[in-house]
Design a protein around this nucleic acid. Sequence first.
DNA 1: CGTGTATTTGAACCTCGTCAAGCCGGGTGG
DNA 2: CCACCCGGCTTGACGAGGTTCAAATACACG
Lengths: 231, 231
Amino acid sequence: MLATAQASSTGFHLGAISHLRHLPEDRSGILGELARTQAIGRQEVLFHEADDAASVFEIIQGVIRLCRLLPDGRRSITGFAFPSSILGLSFREAYVYTAQAITPCEVRRCGQAAVTKLLDSGPQIRRQLLGIVSDELCSAQDQMLLLGRKTAPGRLVSFLLWLAAKMAPEQTVPTHVDLPMPRGDIADYLGLTTETVSREITKLKQAGLISLPMPQRIVFVRLKTLRQIAE
Amino acid sequence: MLATAQASSTGFHLGAISHLRHLPEDRSGILGELARTQAIGRQEVLFHEADDAASVFEIIQGVIRLCRLLPDGRRSITGFAFPSSILGLSFREAYVYTAQAITPCEVRRCGQAAVTKLLDSGPQIRRQLLGIVSDELCSAQDQMLLLGRKTAPGRLVSFLLWLAAKMAPEQTVPTHVDLPMPRGDIADYLGLTTETVSREITKLKQAGLISLPMPQRIVFVRLKTLRQIAE
DNA sequence: CGTGTATTTGAACCTCGTCAAGCCGGGTGG
DNA sequence: CCACCCGGCTTGACGAGGTTCAAATACACG
């Protein structure tokens, strides 16, 4: 059932490009009835790096971490996936990262063949799928800039504001964010250590920029200053 | 010779492409006769970040740097483009980085519309274009791991070996590499400073792992050790 | 031969990683 | 109900790795 009408992704031209990089298209149900819904327990692995890329996933509920390992065990988290994210659109033989549930999740899965069929089914949906991959590429480059050229506080604040926007897309002015992932995951995402992440959070609290009712909840107190720190 | 005419930045768009972790498909001329060939002078800009993404480019000759700027001037180079790379496959409204020639270049350009047409022309070419974007995403993640979890010598050696493979793909055992870009570009690509890049090169030389007949030429002396350092 | 740029080198400083310990909260079992 | 344990988080002391600032050198170009 194609109840969810595909939002047209044809050009918006509003000038203020940087905010519009990731247009809020409605992608819900892009995989349609080709997909089967499935529950995933906390810490469960959807697929491993280098596994045969057999399936594509759409996250319905929960948060998933995407990570890569160096031979000596150093870990890099390349991204997090939230509801409506698409995972595994590789168009290649193997997955390039491991996907693991941080919280209990609900996902829809469908085979690569179904995606190929989807791609052949028309220019509209094609554009949408390609846009998804393009957006991923764009955020990957944002992340490179963060890792290569921002300091620890800049990285952390950028992350907190980004996460708040991801978790509550409807809010233009975020008030707080609840961290679904442990400090270690944040560290591996930001190229820092758990200790540094913790210390920087403490500093923000002591500077009165955030408050911390509990370790998993960050309340933004001086949002404007935070935005400056994130640059 | 071209005087240093600052190229006006009227809109072109572009994405970026490189690396071939996967199969060595022949992509030469993938844009076909839809494209027009064009010469680009050193330091000339193909397109700017946030410009309307109007064209797609294929590099025929030369090396191009792709970069992003932070408001305060810090720069991050997100990639380099070599012959046979495709730039600007964004499937979005605007380019997400600036593309600038490091050496004199020859490129083929064609409009986005032509790419769309190409995409509609069959599953074969579709797979190829999608594979290109997927490969880009994969290298972007490699780079995140490098920036987040490798030390200065690890980053530098990884880069040198990677560059050697890019510049002479036919050689399985590289003997040397000629750097087309200045130290500052390498630094902005690796998330370091010019001074650190220079010092690390000096250290490799003093350790007898490389030799340096001239600043732009790196000769690999103990390849195996270098590979270990790169991990 | 003089000028400007790229590269190298030096010294002081500082951010962040490392190692180690302490803290807090939840769950389990006595 | 309490004692204990265990994992995640915080805090402290210390040092290494990289940045910053400054200057010397080398090189290409006019």
